[in-house]
């Protein structure tokens, strides 16, 4: 019993440590495309996630995806599948992996990787057409990925 308590304390301490350290893009661990560990240890905020999904300079998800939950957004694109029911079809871990780097789930997919900062060909500085400045920031921050995932988990059929 005593031993279990000590172990519990160690786990709590470990979790607290994780909560403080953000997982860098190059350190994200993908398992069959899914990412089990939160990138920040801080629960995602669905409202912020929605903002990131519709902002053209952030996720801009509506450029390619339609969804009932986003029907107030004019002219959604249809290059990607509809996001309706995404929270039923996928686990949080899978959604985190798809948002961070969908190519780990769907080989060769057109979908951009939103949490990646290397391996690009001629990376640009935003939409200026000029070369990116090092270090390259991923399109979404770690917390924004968590926010988007938390909002997607509410997409139920």
């Amino acid at each position: 019993m005593k031993r279990q308590i000590v172990l519990g304390m160690i786990i709590s301490a470990f979790s607290a440590g994780v909560a403080m350290a953000e997982v860098a893009p190059e350190s994200v661990a993908y398992t069959d495309g899914a990412v089990a560990q939160s990138l920040t240890g801080t629960a995602g905020n669905p409202e912020e996630g929605r903002k990131a999904m519709v902002d053209r300079g952030l996720g801009n998800c509506v450029a390619c995806h339609k969804a009932e939950m986003l029907k107030d957004q004019p002219f959604p694109g249809d290059v990607g599948p509809t996001l309706d029911g995404a929270g039923d079809r996928w686990t949080e871990e899978q959604l985190r992996g798809i948002v961070a780097n969908a190519k780990m789930t769907f080989d060769g997919t057109v979908m951009p990787a939103f949490y990646k900062n290397s391996g690009y060909i001629r990376p640009g500085d935003g939409y200026t057409g000029k070369a990116a400045k090092e270090p390259i920031a991923p399109i979404l921050s770690a917390q924004q990925v968590e926010d988007v995932v938390s909002y997607l988990m509410t997409f139920k059929e």
Partner: peptide, 18 residues
């Protein structure tokens, strides 16, 4: 680029879509 898109991704694979 950061979006990792080729000409083909849009104009060959997805022409006709939005």
């Amino acid at each position: 680029g950061l979006l990792e898109l080729s000409c083909a991704n849009c104009h060959e694979q997805n022409n006709g879509k939005y």
